Amino acid sequence: MTIAPDDARRSASHLYRAMHDLVQSVDDTVPGRFEITKEGIVHDMTSPVGRHELTTLRLRKRLERVMPEEIVAHTGEPDVEDEPEGVMRRPDVMVIAEADMDVEGPVDPQAIMAVVEVVSRSSPDNDWVAKMRDYPLIGIPVYAVFDPRTGAGAVLTDIHATPAGPRYATRKDFVYGEDVTIGEWTIPTDGLPLYSGAPSAEPA
């Protein structure tokens, strides 16, 4: 049997809506965070909660100190959704104009200036692999990853086309203690917590 492109798109859309409805039905009743990727539903337990959330808090505050008042480093809901691509994410921090958050439902990824993710100990590949694929796919121009397991991270920019789909062309690695530039703004990374048992990071 041959499936026409329009039929394939409708089938993919129905599958996405089914996953979306499932996520909405369990999101408030099951611990952790549910997101939808090109490979299906991801359940991130975001463990350990304390140091993950402390890292997110400190990054948000440091970004907002150097950004104009009309730009925010937002944490929490709403989700970022690109239904045609079948992706729904909830970044740890999204850099966005406050005016662009005045919407009903999910945020348009085209409105986002940058996304920051703090790697969770329970599912590091979600941040280092899946999101590195999904964010350029939906047009997020800057993706910054902070990894409390290692005290290091990377900032990815410059989306370009590849045979496997859109990917970031530029990656700048850093270790905690160095200043890091995310979009137009530079922040310090000293004093960010590490997960228990993680090696301490020293600037190169």
Rank of each mutant, 00 (worst) to 15 (best):
P136R: 03
T29A: 10
P124N: 10
H20R: 13
L22E: 04
R33Q: 13
D127M: 08
T75H: 05
V145E: 06
R62L: 09
R51I: 08
D44W: 04
P141S: 12
P91L: 02
G139M: 03
E81D: 04
D127T: 06
M88S: 10
P78V: 11
T37K: 09
H52Q: 08
G50K: 15
H74K: 02
D79T: 05
P84C: 04
R133K: 14
R60C: 15
D100P: 02
A99D: 12
V23L: 02
R89G: 11
Y143C: 14
Q24G: 10
T29K: 02
I138A: 05
K61Q: 15
G32F: 06
V26P: 06
V95R: 00
E104I: 02
D127K: 06
L59G: 14
R60L: 11
P31C: 13
R90A: 05
R89Y: 09
T75G: 13
G86C: 07
V49L: 11
P78D: 00
L57H: 13
E81P: 06
D108L: 07
M67W: 04
M113G: 12
Q110Y: 00
L57I: 13
V115Y: 06
G105A: 04
Y143W: 05
V42R: 00
M19G: 03
I71A: 08
M88Y: 00
Y143E: 13
T29C: 05
G32V: 07
T29W: 04
E77Q: 08
P136G: 01
H43F: 10
D44P: 13
V116Q: 07
A73V: 12
V66A: 06
E70D: 14
E77A: 09
M88R: 09
D28H: 05
N126I: 01
A99R: 12
P124W: 03
V107H: 02
I36N: 01
V23E: 00
V49H: 12
V87E: 00
T46H: 03
R121Q: 12
D100Y: 05
T37G: 14
I36T: 05
N126Q: 03
R90V: 03
R89P: 10
E77W: 01
T29P: 03
S122Q: 07
S47A: 13
S120Y: 08
V142C: 08
E117Y: 06
P141N: 09
E53A: 15
V87Y: 03
M45C: 13
E117R: 00
G40F: 00
G76S: 07
V87P: 11
A97N: 05
Y135L: 14
E69K: 11
R51H: 12
T29H: 09
Y143M: 12
H74N: 12
T29V: 12
R89Q: 09
E39H: 13
D127E: 14
T37H: 10
L22D: 01
I138L: 07
I36C: 03
P109E: 00
M113D: 11
